[in-house]
Simulated assay, not measured.
Amino acid sequence: MTATLTARWVVLDIEGTLTATSYVHVTLYDYARPRLGPWIDEHPEDPEVAAAVAEIKELGGLPADASTVDVVRVLHGWMDADRKIAPLKTLQGLIWQRGYAEGDLTTEFFGDVAPALRSWHESGLRLAVFSSGSVAGQIASFSRTTDGDVTGLFERHFDTVNAGPKREAPSYRAIASALEAEPGDIVFFSDVPAELDGAAADGWQTVGLAREGEPFGDADFGTHRTIRTFDEIKVVPR
C-alpha cells in the first residue's frame, strides 16, 4: 500500500537518492580530478577560485606560497577519502559546470526520479535540493540529464556553505527559515540515516531511500519511513 504524505516543500538529497553514488564517485570525480590543477592555474584572478585555494592551503596545513601541485595533492587526498569540504566542492562544481555546458557530462537519474519530480511540481509542491555538492554543481547537473533539463522544477538550492553540515539540525532550521516554511510542512528525502536524523530533529518529515545496490541500501533507518523507490510513496500539497 502506497503511503501518502502532505507537505508544502519537498527537499531532496542527490547522491544515492536521485543518482547512483557511483555516478558521483566515478564519473564526476574522475572528470574533475585531472582538471583541478589546470583550473586553478587558468583562473588565478577569479575571486571564488582564489578564496577556495587560500582555504585549501589553510585547511591542508600548506604555506601561503604552496604550489598548485601541493594544493592538488591535498584535494586528491580529500577526494579519495570522500571528504565533504567546501573549497573542494566549489572547485569541483565550477569544473562540472563547464563539463555540462560543453556536453561532456550528462546526469543519469534513477528511472523513478524524473516522473516523481514532474508529478510533484505539477501538483503544486515546491521543490528544493540540499546536497553536499556546491549550488553551482547542483544546477549544472540538472541542466543536462538523461531526462532533459530539469532546472525549472527546482526553486531553491542549498549546500554545506549556505546551509551548513548535512547531519546537523541547525542546517535544517536555516533551510526552513530560508523557505519561509514551518518544519512540519517540509519532507526531506535522503539515503543517509544521519541526515534524516538531523532533519527530524528540527521537526521535518523524513523519508529514507534504501535503494538496492547503494551504500546505504541495507542501512538501519530507525524510525524514518523507508522506501526503495519514489513509486512507493505519494506526496500531496497542503
Rank of each mutant, 00 (worst) to 15 (best):
T160S: 12
D46G: 01
V135Q: 11
R228V: 11
E48Y: 01
G213H: 00
V187W: 13
L117S: 04
D30E: 14
N162V: 04
P237L: 06
Q205M: 11
Q138N: 00
P115K: 08
I233S: 08
S134D: 10
T106A: 07
D185C: 02
V113Q: 04
M79F: 03
I56T: 08
E195I: 08
H76C: 04
R144N: 14
A50D: 09
I139S: 13
G198C: 09
Q138K: 01
V24H: 08
L179E: 07
A86Q: 13
D46E: 11
W78Q: 09
V74C: 08
Q92E: 13
T160R: 08
V10M: 08
H224K: 13
R73S: 13
K57Q: 14
A50H: 12
D80M: 02
H121I: 04
P34A: 09
I95G: 05
Q97P: 00
D41Q: 14
N162D: 04
P87W: 10
D30Q: 14
A136Q: 12
Y31S: 01
R167V: 15
L18G: 07
R98A: 15
R156S: 13
I186F: 05
V129T: 09
A174P: 01
A210H: 02
T90R: 13
Y172S: 08
I139C: 10
G198A: 15
T90V: 15
A81E: 12
P63H: 07
I175Q: 06
A66G: 00
D149M: 04
T17P: 10
S190G: 05
D30A: 09
A178F: 04
A210R: 04
A51F: 05
R173N: 07
